[in-house]
C-alpha cells in the first residue's frame, strides 16, 4: 500500500458500509425504489445549503447566515405568491407569478450575499462574526415582516418544484444535481474556482499573485446567498409554507456535511463530489433509522459519531502515510 489513500475512497467505503448496515437492519424496505425516491425528496434541502456553506469554507470563511437568508427569501417569495393569488382569485394561470417570486427570492439572496461580502472584504470583520451578525439581523427582519406567523397556500406551479418528479426522479433532487453541477464547473473550470482554492490555502500569496481578494470574497458570498435562495425555493415548495425560523439546525448540519465531505475547515481543500457522497451517507442514516422507527435525535447523535469516526480514520491514515515517507 504505497499509494496514499484518497479521502474520497474512505467516504465511498463509509457509504457502502452504511448502506449494507441499513439493508441488514431494514431488509428490502430500505433497498426499495420508494425509499430511494423519498430520500431524493428529503436530501436536497440540506444538500443545497451545504453547497452554500462549502464554497465559503473553501475560502477559509464560513457562512452562518445561510438558513436565515433562505428563510427571508422564502418569506419574500411567499408574500408574492400568496398576494398575487388572492388578488386574482385564480390559481391556474400563475406561472408568471412563480417566475417573479423566484426572481425576487434570488435577489434577496444576492443582496444578503453582497452585505456579507461587504462586511468581510471591506469592513474587515471575520466571516464567522459578520455572518453571525447578519444571521441574527436577517432572522429578526423575517420575524418583523411576518409577525412570527406562517405564510401558506401557494399556487400549484411552485408546489410541483417541491413534490413533483421527472421520469421518476424527484424535482428537488434534480435541482440539487444542477446546483452541484454548476458548482463543480465553477470550482474546477473557471478562474474564480482557482482563485477560491488559492485564497483559501494562502490569502497573502493569492493577493501577491495579482488576485483581487476582495472581489473573490464578494463573489463567494453572493454565490452562497444565491444557493441559500435556491434551498428556500425547495423548502417553501415542499412545505407549502414559509416561516421565520424554519430549519435553524441546518446551519451546523451544513458545516458537518461539508467537513464530512472532505472540506478543510481552514480553507483551500474540498470537492463537490465528496460533499455529494457525504450528503448521501447522512440521508441514508436518517432514512434507515426512520424506517426502524428510531427517534430523529438518535440520527443527529449518530451523524456526530460518524463525523468524529471519519476524522479519526483520516488522521490515522495521514499519520501512517507520513511515517512511511520518512522511514
Amino acid at each position: 500500500m504505497r499509494q496514499k489513500i484518497s479521502y474520497l475512497s474512505i467516504l465511498i467505503v463509509a457509504m457502502i458500509v452504511v448502506m449494507v448496515m441499513m439493508w441488514i437492519f431494514n431488509g428490502n424496505d430500505f433497498m426499495s425504489f420508494n425509499n430511494f425516491q423519498s430520500m431524493g425528496y428529503q436530501l436536497p434541502e440540506l444538500g443545497v445549503l451545504s453547497l452554500a456553506m462549502m464554497i465559503t469554507m473553501l475560502t477559509a470563511g464560513i457562512n452562518l447566515s445561510i438558513v436565515a437568508s433562505a428563510n427571508l427569501s422564502g418569506i419574500v417569495m411567499a408574500f408574492i405568491l400568496t398576494g398575487m393569488v388572492s388578488q386574482e382569485g385564480v390559481v391556474q394561470d400563475s406561472s408568471g407569478v412563480v417566475v417573479l417570486a423566484i426572481l425576487a427570492g434570488l435577489l434577496v439572496g444576492i443582496l444578503i450575499g453582497f452585505l456579507n461580502g461587504f462586511l468581510i472584504a471591506v469592513v474587515g470583520i471575520s466571516p464567522i462574526l459578520a455572518t453571525l451578525g447578519t444571521s441574527i439581523m436577517i432572522g429578526g427582519i423575517s420575524v418583523v415582516i411576518t409577525k412570527g406567523y406562517v405564510i401558506s397556500g401557494f399556487p400549484k406551479a411552485i408546489l410541483t418544484i417541491g413534490n413533483g418528479s421527472f421520469l421518476g426522479i424527484p424535482i428537488p433532487l434534480l435541482v440539487f444535481l444542477i446546483c452541484a453541477g454548476v458548482m463543480t464547473v465553477i470550482l474546477e473550470k473557471t478562474p474564480l474556482g482557482t482563485r477560491v482554492y488559492l485564497m483559501g490555502s494562502n490569502p497573502i500569496a493569492c493577493l501577491y499573485s495579482g488576485v483581487d481578494n476582495k472581489k473573490v470574497i464578494f463573489q463567494t458570498y453572493i454565490i452562497s446567498g444565491i444557493l441559500s435562495s435556491v434551498a428556500a425555493i425547495i423548502m417553501i415548495a415542499r412545505f407549502n409554507s414559509a416561516k421565520a425560523d424554519y430549519g435553524e439546525s441546518y446551519v451546523l448540519q451544513a458545516v458537518l456535511a461539508s467537513v464530512l465531505g472532505g472540506v478543510n475547515a481552514s480553507g483551500g481543500f474540498g470537492k463537490v463530489s465528496g460533499l455529494i457522497i457525504s450528503i448521501i451517507i447522512l440521508q441514508m442514516i436518517s432514512s434507515g433509522l426512520n424506517l426502524m422507527g428510531v427517534s430523529n435525535f438518535l440520527t443527529i447523535a449518530i451523524w456526530g459519531i460518524i463525523l468524529l469516526l471519519v476524522m479519526v480514520v483520516k488522521f490515522l491514515l495521514e499519520k501512517n502515510s507520513q511515517k512511511r515517507k520518512f522511514s
Binding site: L252, V255, L256, V259, A265, S266, F297, L298, T299, I300, A301, I302, W303, G304, I305, L307, L308, M311, V312, F315
Partner: peptide, 17 residues
C-alpha cells in the same frame, strides 16, 4: 481535529442522545 468540528460533532452526540 479542529475544535469547531469536534465540538459540532459532540454537540450533536450529547444533545441527540
Amino acid at each position: 481535529i479542529p475544535s469547531i468540528i469536534t465540538t459540532i460533532a459532540t454537540q450533536n452526540i450529547f444533545y441527540g442522545l
